[in-house]
């Protein structure tokens, strides 16, 4: 959040507004992060993942670029503007095996932070003439595929969120589980559901997300099942 706020401050006078959307079912979990960043940019919350359905978001952080007319010039893609400190951190020898395996996969995630940041600056400067601003046809073509099962996953996730609020978590879990199986590449459905099992009240969210008892999996197991850290991010094509 502080990074996005800094980006907003840097480019606001040049015509760019950064808009951050928290995909948090529980607002209280997002609030401390927002408070810390003291955003002057619009900071929104989307507990049922409207932007997954409307814009094709499947993980965080991801972003879309919207021009002055309300037209997308880049579809949903991995959006990182700072290199994660986890990437360069040495993995100590005594690290437990599971955590070591997880950190190894994190290091394999393609890192486009610098190029992505430069691309934003280029777009702010040159608008539609920027090489990074795509035509409407390119935007649609480069968005993720959406087979019928992804539509069902979206509906199940949303209905699960409704049951979570009205009945309780146990009512939501079977629907979320089915949603996860139908749209495996959507990490927002998984990580949101899993954190309710793996994060203790008042604790920061747990990277490991070992949720075998309820979901029969974990973050690491799912990353491996989908081909490892290399495939975790929708890498922006910036050439």
């Amino acid at each position: 959040m502080p990074g996005w706020q800094a980006l907003h401050e840097e480019f606001e006078a040049k015509g760019l507004t950064v808009l951050t959307v928290a995909l948090d079912l529980e607002k209280s979990k997002a609030q401390p992060w927002v408070d810390e960043a003291s955003p002057t940019h619009p900071s929104l919350i989307d507990p049922t993942h409207v932007i997954d359905r409307a814009l094709g978001i499947v993980n965080v952080p991801m972003a879309v670029w919207i021009d002055e007319t309300g037209t997308l010039v880049r579809p949903a893609e991995g959006a990182s503007i700072e290199v994660s400190p986890l990437r360069s951190a040495e993995i100590p020898e005594e690290t437990p095996d599971r955590l070591k395996a997880l950190l190894t996969e994190v290091k394999k995630m393609p890192d486009t932070a610098e190029a992505y940041r430069d691309a934003i600056a280029d777009w702010v400067e040159h608008g539609a003439d920027s090489a990074y601003a795509l035509t409407p046809e390119e935007v649609v073509a480069r968005s993720q595929a959406r087979p019928p099962e992804h539509s069902k996953a979206a509906a199940l996730f949303e209905l699960g969120c409704h049951l979570f609020e009205t009945v309780g978590k146990d009512a939501a879990v079977p629907l979320w589980k089915e949603a996860h199986a139908l749209h495996r590449e959507n990490w927002t459905y998984k990580r949101q559901a899993w954190t309710l099992e793996s994060t203790a009240e008042g604790e920061p969210s747990d990277l490991m997300q070992e949720v075998g008892d309820v979901y029969g999996t974990s973050w690491l197991d799912d990353v491996m099942a989908l081909g490892g850290g290399e495939n975790y991010v929708v890498v922006p094509t910036l050439d």
Binding site: V60, M62, A63, I66
Partner: peptide
């Protein structure tokens, strides 16, 4: 139409005329 952290409705169209970088993030 989403809501801001204070619970006020926010329409994306209110930003017409500006470039917008819409970023999805989460606490988890």
């Amino acid at each position: 139409e989403l809501t801001d952290m204070d619970g006020n409705p926010f329409k994306l169209s209110s930003l017409h005329g500006r470039k917008v970088l819409l970023v999805a993030w989460a606490s988890w």
